[in-house]
Design a protein around this nucleic acid. Structure first.
Lengths: 363, 363
DNA sequence: CTGTTAGCGCATTCAG
DNA sequence: CTGAATGCGCTAACAG
């Protein structure tokens, strides 16, 4: 059947309010009409769940192909009370760590035949809430979220009703929500211990806002390691901009008790600190040793290669999303959510003072 | 009104097939009933487009708040023939360049009050086609796509019907689709000229598959610069893995006409080549000078800092999406699409042989 | 300014 | 194994 004939067919209809638009999309009843069956038969052929005679099936499939019919997912979702889509909220997409998480989420969703509606919160609780509501209005079947700062996020079970939600990278207050995290505290503690093993007595922790769960959890690990070694903690949480960081570092390096090693809270601060160190003309690790939380693509090509705590970003996204699909499949709303903590790795390169020619990974 | 009362109210309904589920979501007619008005009045209050008396408006708003009513976007989209959502297809989300593009797309969409359905194609034309069809079935109002390899992508105007589509980063065959690109050829040419100005006669181009538009376009710029300087081109397109790259580079460096400078096609190959160079114990830029296409976060901290061509990733995503919303607003399907080419910058650091203490940007 | 009617495309229910 | 009727929640079109 030529395209002209298809259009002519589509316009030949008994219904009243039909717009005889030349390019009306074919509907299920168009297919049914052409195949000489009822709409239900078409629906059944499409879903494949119920048995339909081979004869009829063939006729329907032919009609579908002739009309180039595609089911209207919107109608299907509207009718069926489930949209086969999930929502994903992350702070930023330009941050490689979050982008990696997002990649895993979309991958798992695709494996389940689901669509992903994505949005960014910019760490703002209000934006986050608005976007979550927006997704709920779109009737997503579930949501995966990296929540905005701990004490500020307004995401609660009651907001979501019976829509399952999994938080990851950071927890939420509501204990009925599932959450997937990594070993922030243990990882930080372990790497500080390593720095101490190198003989450092004065290790500084340089972080972004303490209101971020991960940054604070890592600080806790740092402090623990220092305490256990009988050393004094020396932490800042104000490395907001490059300039701030440079000013802070200069200050620190001035005194007699200047740190001989630094741990940064995340990749952003790592960059700020590396810039500051370069500006001050200091060398790593001879003038000051260095370790960072969160690995990144080019960490082995910096001068020197950086020792870091590596987080399983994709794994975390994958686990969180699998958990969500589990909830969706079971259709249950648990009283208390799971709390899954994924292990991190310590990647020893050279900024800590190690002499390895290539990197060494510790679990 | 307490929650108990709200639920009781929702269950008190005349309609027959109603499931008296305790947690039925309130609908517009629930609101209308409680406010003692017709559903259309509620609809009008919500849309705000038509005048409704202050009295009634207040009653409706009160009812909405009491019932915690949220409009069903799915029904709205189904009814209204527009979903207020756009589709976004990119190769991978774990690639920072693509992630940056995606960030811009979601930002612009949010400014327009639109949702973004995101998916990855993994550069595979079949996946890409399937995902595009999936989005069409979801009735997205438009799509922004980074198409899979040039000669393989199956994305055409006829597939999309009257749904507007903008391709970016890479073009598509169909000339009726809008496309947003960057100056791949000019950028590569310019940076090779710079390498030549440093006195290099043998510059090698190391790339991924030539079937990728950008990789090929950059090669063209490279070849042009070499030709104009009367030099012989020396290009490979087989840097698929780290091992391949190392083997290729070793081969190249063996002969008497070994390159004295290298240009890589993108960040992935940059990493492979840097690894290979390190393994071979060569120094940059003394043993071999280096430049890469595509800037990245830590490029100023590598040893030495890398000279690169910087692409406006977010700008490209922003322009493409704005163009799409333009099309959506006009509701027109153009005969011939726009072709927008965005400028790139050359960022001179030290791997090319420059002695600057800090980076210099050339437009 | 406000209400009524009708139908978007599909799948559930119930009859054949 | 197949079909007809029905309504999901909303809004355009028309009345009042």
């Amino acid at each position: 059947m030529s395209e002209v004939h298809v259009n002519a067919f589509l316009n030949r209809t008994k219904q009243r309010h039909r717009v005889p638009a030349v390019h009306r999309k074919p509907t299920m009843s168009d297919v049914a009409r052409l195949a000489g069956v009822g709409t239900m038969t078409v629906s059944r052929v499409l879903s494949g769940a119920v048995r339909v005679s081979a004869q009829t099936t063939l006729r329907v499939q032919t009609a579908i192909e002739q009309l180039k019919y595609r089911p209207n997912e919107l109608a299907r979702a509207f009718r069926g009370q489930r949209s086969r889509s999930i929502g994903l909220i992350i702070p930023y997409l330009y941050d490689p760590f979050f982008a990696n998480c997002a990649h895993a989420v979309t991958s798992v969703a695709k494996e389940h035949g689901y669509s992903v509606i994505i949005t960014t919160s910019a760490e703002d609780p209000d934006t986050e809430l608005a976007e979550a509501e927006h997704m709920l209005e779109r009737h997503v079947d579930g949501m995966v979220v990296i929540p905005s700062p701990f004490r500020q996020t307004r995401l609660t079970r009651s907001l979501f009703g019976k829509t399952p939600v999994v938080a990851f990278d950071r927890p939420v207050h509501d204990p009925s929500l599932d959450v997937v995290l990594v070993q922030n505290t243990a990882g930080a503690r372990r790497i500080v211990e390593h720095l101490i093993e190198h003989g450092h007595k004065r290790v500084a922790y340089m972080g972004l806002s303490r209101s971020l769960f991960t940054i604070n959890a890592r600080f806790l690990g740092y402090r623990r390691a220092m305490q256990e070694a009988g050393l004094a903690a020396d932490a800042t949480f104000d490395c907001i901009t490059e300039d701030d960081t440079q000013r802070i570092l200069k200050e620190k390096m001035r005194g007699k008790d200047a740190p001989t090693a630094i741990l940064t809270s995340n990749t952003l601060v790592t960059r700020y600190v590396l810039t500051a160190i370069a500006h001050m003309g200091m060398r790593i690790p001879s003038d000051v040793a260095f370790a960072g939380f969160d690995d990144f693509d080019m960490a082995e090509f910096t001068a020197p290669p950086l020792t870091v705590v590596r987080q399983p970003a994709q794994e975390m996204g994958r686990v969180a999303t699998s958990l969500l699909f589990d909830r969706i499949a079971r259709g249950e709303t648990p009283q208390s959510g799971n709390r899954i903590v994924l292990p991190v790795e310590i990647v020893l390169r050279r900024s800590c003072g190690c002499k390895h020619r290539t990197e060494v990974v510790i679990n």
